[in-house]
């Protein structure tokens, strides 16, 4: 069922699938980078433990900068550090970077083409009980409008680890996004990862589900259920929103004739928007959007919130049915005309 070349976790669909937060992979990668690259430095905005930068702090105290609660300045300082040869990783919540520091990111990081690595932790509604102020659902939209910015929303701990290491090796500004809640470990050490190259995790020809972040697992779960009913979905892990893998996306749209985008973000401006913009130009097909329906979040348990706001496998299944119906009616109209 799953694409074997992707070397996904064997127990992916079992109850014993390992659950970890994506940010754990960030912390692991930073320690690895600390060892392999003396220019890597880390800046924390009074959120060392929750952004998982503690390990780096203890191992490389001289290269760890506690900045306090000053995200705008923190981004600027990181850009300055990059101008003197450092590779700074900025660690705080997505609500603040990019949320609060957008102008600094636009000018000091983007326009300057600074070699800074911004990380938005606790992104998405699955932050849970903290409520709407901390549930950043607009970060991808902000970041992907900036020329030259690389934007990555990894799906699990291991993919986050790989993305962080690749980000350090990529010259230029990068935005990495993580969640707070534990998510199933979908990928393994052997799963291929390349910034800007989407992975087809499951093949199919009825509908292509283009997902990233925690919605990748939900997409796989939905596709598995749909298969039992004879609906074959392709599942694409579009971890990099910018630069978007146009080739894989157009291939998926051509093969399936309909797409669903699935992300833990506003349905405007994020992955869904990027896919729609690309397909409108290259290969328009019916598209349905899984994401936050133009709303702020609220307090609640992560799972409850994902269900309530339609970002679960249940919602994906409904969207697949809907888009298949649109695809079919499109064919009928085409036949009549």
């Amino acid at each position: 069922m799953v694409n074997e070349a992707m070397k996904l976790a064997e127990n992916l669909f079992n109850n014993d699938v390992k659950m970890t937060p994506t940010r754990d992979g960030y912390g692991e990668a930073l320690v690895e980078l600390g060892e392999s690259n003396p220019n890597v430095v880390v800046l924390s905005g009074d959120l060392t433990e929750s952004t998982r930068t503690e390990g780096f702090k203890h191992k490389f105290p001289d290269r760890f900068y506690e900045m306090g609660i000053c995200e705008q300045n923190m981004v600027g300082v990181a850009c300055g550090l990059s101008m003197v040869g450092k590779i700074p990783f900025v660690a705080t919540y997505a609500a603040f970077v990019p949320g609060r520091a957008f102008d600094q990111i636009r000018i000091s990081a983007g326009y300057n083409r600074s070699n800074v690595k911004l990380s938005g932790a606790h992104a998405g509604i699955s932050v849970g009980p903290d409520g709407a102020t901390h549930q950043m659902m607009e970060d991808i939209a902000l970041m992907r409008t900036l020329p030259g910015m690389t934007v990555i929303a990894p799906c699990d701990r291991e993919e986050t680890r790989k993305a962080t290491i690749e980000a350090a090796n990529l010259e230029g500004p990068v935005y990495l996004r993580f969640g707070r809640d534990k998510v199933p470990e979908v990928t393994t050490k052997e799963t291929p990862f390349k910034i800007g190259k989407a992975n087809i995790l499951m093949d199919g020809s009825d509908v292509a589900i283009i997902a990233n972040g925690p919605l990748v697992y939900e997409a796989l779960d939905a596709a598995k259920t749909l298969r039992r009913n004879g609906v074959y979905c392709m599942v694409v892990n579009m971890h990099t929103v910018k630069p978007l893998d146009v080739t894989t996306l157009v291939y998926a749209a051509r093969k399936c004739g309909a797409v669903i985008t699935a992300e833990e973000h506003q349905i405007t401006g994020g992955l869904g928007g990027a896919v729609a913009e690309t397909l409108a130009r290259n290969n328009p097909v019916p598209q349905e959007f899984i994401g936050m329906p133009d709303s702020y979040g609220e307090s609640g348990k992560p799972r409850e919130l994902m269900e309530k706001y339609g970002m679960s496998s249940t919602a994906i299944i409904e969207a697949v049915k809907k888009v298949i119906a649109r695809k079919a009616s499109g064919r009928i109209f085409a036949g009549v005309l």
Partner: peptide, 10 residues
């Protein structure tokens, strides 16, 4: 000024 502080820190 933030960038300058970053350079000085480096």
């Amino acid at each position: 000024i933030s960038a300058a502080a970053g350079m000085a820190l480096g």
